[in-house]
């Protein structure tokens, strides 16, 4: 099985492996998620109704309000959390929230990461190196 490695910008958090949950939609914790049920709740979101808990959540751009900066840590501490957040482009809110939560976060890949990885693939996230490794 061939290994694919994607290089992005290093971010906070530790190395984790998990199953990818991918969409080309954007991301806001406050606007898009039901934090109690652990599902994507925004009706227009492609992942609406799906659980993000324990997944490597891969989406396009961080959007929306500032609440995500607090919410990521509460998600991590409650256990209803993705294992890592992977975006084409994070914004400061996601970076601040991931830093506060120690949630693994990588962004700024040289490819569209939402097209490069498929839901269900096993992905290893190394935030210190800034890499995503699929297979291998």
């Amino acid at each position: 099985m061939s290994t694919r490695v994607y290089k992005g910008h290093p971010g906070p958090g530790i190395k984790v492996t998990g199953e990818a949950l991918v969409a080309s939609d954007n991301f806001s914790a406050r606007y898009d998620l039901d934090l109690v049920k652990g599902i994507v709740s925004r009706p227009a979101h492609k992942l609406a109704g799906q659980s993000y808990v324990g997944k490597i959540l891969i989406l396009n751009i961080a959007k929306g309000g500032v609440a995500s900066a607090w919410m990521l840590r509460d998600m991590v501490q409650s256990g209803r959390t993705p294992k890592a957040l992977i975006l084409n482009f994070a914004n400061p809110i996601m970076a601040q929230g991931a830093a506060f939560a120690d949630l693994p976060l990588i962004d700024r890949f040289d490819v569209d990461i939402t097209q490069a990885i498929k839901s269900g693939e096993s992905v290893t996230v190394d935030p210190v190196a800034g890499t995503l490794t699929v297979g291998g």
């Binding site: 500032v66 609440a67 607090w70 919410m71 840590r73 509460d74 501490q77």
Partner: peptide, 15 residues
């Protein structure tokens, strides 16, 4: 500073 209790959650308030 934005820190409403819903966003903070119990863990944020503990912090």
């Amino acid at each position: 500073l934005m820190a409403d209790p819903e966003a903070l959650g119990p863990s944020g308030v503990d912090f």
